[in-house]
Amino acid sequence: MTPGAIFTQLVHLALMLALAPLLVGLVRWLKARLMGRRGPSPLQPWRDLAKLARKQPLLAESASVMSVATPYLALAATSAAAALVPGFARGMALAPMADLILVAGLLALSRFALALAAMDVGTAFGDLGAAREMSFAAFAEPAFILSVLCFAILAGSTNLDAIGAAFADGGPGLRISLLLALLALLAVALAENGRMPVDNPATHLELTMVHEAMLLETSGRYLALWEMQAALRLMLWLSLLAALFLPFGTAPAFSGLGGWLLGLLAWVVKLGALAVALAVFESAIAKMRVFRVPEFLGAALLLALLGAVFLFLSTGLA
């Protein structure tokens, strides 16, 4: 662990945290523009967070220590996962730990914490949201793990840094399996972040019955933590997609300032492109019924399985 690697790691985590609300704001602004509205500035989420963090929180009478402790745990676990996903540079200090299954585990930890917070007060909405969130995860996780299987076969490792390095020079070539894994991961990313065909991130209460339903009883700094967690999770997923499928331009380990700046530029461009794609997709599509979601994620699971089968086929041929 060199000082340079530690410094890269810290810069990466700081950038992740700083850019996450901006990314959410950007997507909201883009969607507003696409719908013909002016929309709030992309800085608005940061302003909201700053305001919420200073306000006095209000806890329900039946709330326990879980309402207080879980937002910290969830954001800490999500931040830890975000620290592991490469952004502008590879070879960060935590690169040996950056395992895809561990990232899934940390996200599961924060999801568990969120569900605990939702159930803490004992309201119908919280319980409903928690039950649905965990049920969707039951379909999203196998799809994710099977996509990981595709990468494990192509790169020989589940380590994100190793996969990025193996893919950066175009080693695996164009593969239908990668296309299938990409589709599967996109579906998982939409479900995990409560984005459009699965859940509507723009509403409270009436139309959304999953993510926002769990946060109805939180306020003040706890709400700020949860909002930050959601933003960071979106940031993490987009970075993950960029790291796996667009590994070009990322600064390799031990590169100088020039490589860094180039990597930073590439990262921001990739994130921006993904944000635009997300905004366009969300504007074009309608939310699906809750009990269609398993079909949607089940299809993703089967596509990932198909991708793995084709990889077996081509390793058998080679």
């Binding site: 006095q56 329900a60 009478e61 745990l73 954001l75 007060v121 909405f125 003040g220 700020a224």
Partner: peptide, 25 residues
């Protein structure tokens, strides 16, 4: 990270949480 979050938020707002009846939608 959790310790940093606790410390950071404590600097921003010192007020302890108030208690109130549950909103419950």
């Amino acid at each position: 990270v959790a310790a940093a979050l606790v410390a950071g938020l404590r600097r921003l707002s010192l007020q302890p949480a108030a208690r109130g009846p549950v909103w419950d939608g």
